[in-house]
């Protein structure tokens, strides 16, 4: 049984923003329904208004703009998985999306929904974080850009204010010399992550010119592993350095014990996943080990 609500289907993004501003906090946005309907059924939310964004074609696109990719927030995970632009420009996002949920969910679930739901385990987040993606938010005050690292404020919480909608994700594309990979651990295929990690490295002259690592499900929000990154940048690209840097992940995270895994296990697995993601990222960067 779902709570009773009024259903709105705005014809444009502008109308959607206006509606949401008018209706205030009693309104919730729906796209794929994979989060909102579940929450409503569990009695976690009972909005008086539901605003349907699933028909807004203006936020449903994947555009290649040279050195960056723009992905409309209403793009489904299925469209992302099948996009040649994403496969070429942000392969680590495709890798993460491929392993997420089932076909049946991905046909309706959107990238915007995955991010706005702000689950600590949102698998789309770590790849976008290592790509230093920017989120474009549209609201009553106009447009603003939020670096993805500042978007999440807690479990289920984001910087979005009343009337604001996540409209698009701007992702700098992979450059030559870079390599990225995504790793996650689940008890079973298609299950929610116990922990996940994305890594992006750039190697030049046998050294890590750049290294970015992000983790999911091991802190109140998806997070960058800055200590791991610091331990890599500028250092020779050796397996030993990669190994010892991966161990820094333990200092970057704040995992909890829940039904999917204990804090201790998550700590250990964070190191394993970071190491594996980094190793594959190095291989993909085409850089031979120093």
């Amino acid at each position: 049984m779902l709570p009773e609500f009024e259903y709105h289907r705005p014809a444009s993004l502008e109308e959607a923003v206006r509606l949401l501003s008018e209706l205030g906090p009693d309104a919730k946005v729906i796209a794929g329904g994979t989060d909102l309907v579940v929450k409503m059924r569990a009695g976690l939310v009972s909005p008086r208004h539901v605003v349907d964004l699933s028909r807004l074609t203006e936020i449903r696109f994947i555009r290649d703009e040279g050195d960056r990719l723009k992905i409309g927030a209403g793009t489904t995970l299925w469209e992302i998985e099948n996009s040649r632009e994403v496969a070429r420009g942000v392969p680590v996002l495709r890798e993460a999306v491929e392993e997420m949920a089932s076909w049946h969910v991905k046909t309706t679930a959107t990238i915007g929904g995955n991010l706005c739901n702000a689950s600590p385990a949102a698998d789309a987040a770590p790849p976008l974080m290592v790509h230093d993606a920017t989120l474009v938010v549209v609201g009553p005050e106009g447009r603003r850009e939020v670096p993805i690292g500042e978007f999440f404020t807690g479990p289920g919480q984001t910087v979005l204010g009343v009337g604001e909608i996540l409209a698009e994700v701007v992702v700098p594309k992979m450059r030559r010399g870079q390599g990225a990979a995504f790793e996650k651990l689940t008890v079973r295929e298609g299950a929610l992550s116990i922990a996940s990690a994305a890594a992006l490295v750039e190697i030049s002259g046998g050294r890590f010119v750049d290294a970015r690592v992000a983790l999911g499900a091991v802190a109140p929000t998806p997070i960058r592993a800055l200590k791991v990154e610091r331990a890599l940048k500028g250092r020779p690209a050796t397996r030993e350095i990669l190994r010892s840097a991966s161990r820094e992940a333990k200092a970057d995270i704040k995992p909890i014990t829940d039904v999917r895994g204990s804090r201790e296990y998550r700590e250990e697995m964070s190191v394993v996943l970071v190491r594996r993601a980094l190793e594959r990222a190095v291989e993909r960067a085409g850089g031979a080990w120093a």
């Binding site: 008890v187 079973r188 295929e189 299950a191 929610l192 039904v259």
Partner: peptide, 11 residues
């Protein structure tokens, strides 16, 4: 079924 995990086709 989110956290009581019966096998899927891939398992």
């Amino acid at each position: 079924f989110t956290d009581y995990l019966i096998p899927t086709s891939l398992d």
